[in-house]
Design a protein around this nucleic acid. Structure first.
Lengths: 120, 120
DNA sequence: CTAACTCTTAAAGTTAACTTTAAGTCAATA
DNA sequence: TATTGACTTAAAGTTAACTTTAAGAGTTAG
């Protein structure tokens, strides 16, 4: 099934100009009708899902582009791509760890405020 | 114990200009010598630690400022401050959840790449 | 058939959070 | 005493990731 730019954007909570921006940055290239209108295929949607996943875990547009450039280069880059995902995996684990540490600080502060609240 | 701007910055992995920037934004105000040199007290350092915690969990400089403005207003704002922390707590939990979902996707991709790697 | 809507492009504008620069003062060392 | 290095200020510059604008073309409803 195919999607218009509006439908594709909506599916991932993005705006159409954002998809055009991604395209300009070289990380997405849907086919176009003779009159220049973009058509997003299932494959494009899968790619866009990966873009959102990498973006949500802190990868820059530039590095996401680098990943898709490697994909386009074919099987010779499989190991390098695997390495990118291994790195991203570690990066995510570190982010979760940092958030949990800060959550503990916040919880501590909440406990303190609750105490203060009772005294009041 | 007191800290120079350099020492204070280093303790939190920041640069001196960043601390001056925070000060300009109204979220930190160390005392100064007669000649204008900043001196960070333990209390300033505690405050800076909270700035880093809130920043690391996604709060904007503007909202961090708002929190410290409430602190400066005294006990009447305790409940509002507690609410800020409760919200931030939920925000952190949501971030962790999102990261975990994306981690699962990445792990899936890694498994796929490892399979492909073996076939090669 | 015309009005309203959605698409197109290229380019300029926005925002947050710094970061750098320029010009200068102050403290300590050779 | 001269110079080196850390501090100061205000203001301009940077970067990423959009977002908005302007001008125009194709599509659909009445």
């Amino acid at each position: 099934m195919n999607y218009t730019i509006r439908q594709a954007a909506e599916k991932f909570g993005l705006e159409p100009p954002t998809l055009r921006y991604y395209e300009k940055e070289g990380i997405l290239s849907p086919r176009k009708t003779e009159t220049g209108i973009r058509i997003y295929s299932e494959e494009d949607m899968d790619q866009l899902e990966m873009v959102c996943c990498l973006k949500a875990t802190g990868m820059s547009i530039k590095d996401i582009r680098r990943y898709f450039d490697l994909c386009a280069q074919g099987d010779s880059t499989v190991e390098e791509r695997l390495e990118i995902f291994n790195q991203q995996r570690l990066h995510i684990l570190k982010q979760i760890e940092t958030l949990q540490k800060n959550l503990a600080k916040i919880d501590c502060k909440i406990a303190w405020y609750k105490g203060k609240h009772h005294i009041k």
